[in-house]
């Protein structure tokens, strides 16, 4: 139901992003999706990649502030309205989405998100039989 996401603290200045990307390249780890939550002074880079645990270790070795977060990943049809239908279920259950992003994978839309109530979110996914993606399915 959840996948491992890398959350990385990077300062807003030239050279910080490349340091992260170089470390992943060095370890031969492929990035599947990424997004950044940016503020005036720093950003939190969020990455879905192959072998997240090994990626995390490699980044730590490079001295980067990185943590593994468990985030939900639902697999939706690549059609208009699918995201709205799913999120509506969470909204009705009184769950707030902390952050969300999506990417295309194998012809399907993958919706990645964190909520303010993990337990209730799990329940909602189970009750509605929402199609989630297994992390191993993402491994290349």
């Amino acid at each position: 139901m959840t996948i491992h996401q890398l959350s990385i603290f990077i300062e807003n200045r030239s050279g910080t992003l490349i340091k992260v990307l170089e470390a992943l390249k060095e370890a031969n780890i492929q990035i599947i999706a990424s997004t950044i939550a940016d503020t005036a002074e720093y950003g939190i880079l969020r990455i879905v990649c192959a072998e997240p645990m090994r990626a995390c270790e490699e980044l730590k070795k490079a001295g980067i502030a990185v943590a593994i977060s468990d985030v939900f990943a639902l697999q939706l049809d690549n059609k208009p309205g699918c995201a709205a239908d799913v999120i509506e279920l969470f909204s009705k259950a009184g769950i707030s989405i902390t952050y969300i992003y999506s990417f295309l994978y194998g012809g399907k839309g993958i919706l990645v998100f964190r909520t303010d109530n993990t337990e209730l979110a799990r329940e909602t996914i189970t009750r509605n039989n929402l199609p989630f993606i297994d992390e191993n399915a993402l491994a290349l």
Binding site: Q5, S7, F9, A37, T39, Y42, I44, R46, K60, G63, I64, A65, V66, A67, I68, S69, D70, T98, Y99, R114
Partner: peptide, 16 residues
Amino acid sequence: LRQEYFTATFDTPAAI
């Protein structure tokens, strides 16, 4: 920021 204190709770700017 100390590397070992950067944990999953810090994955949003609000926490930082």
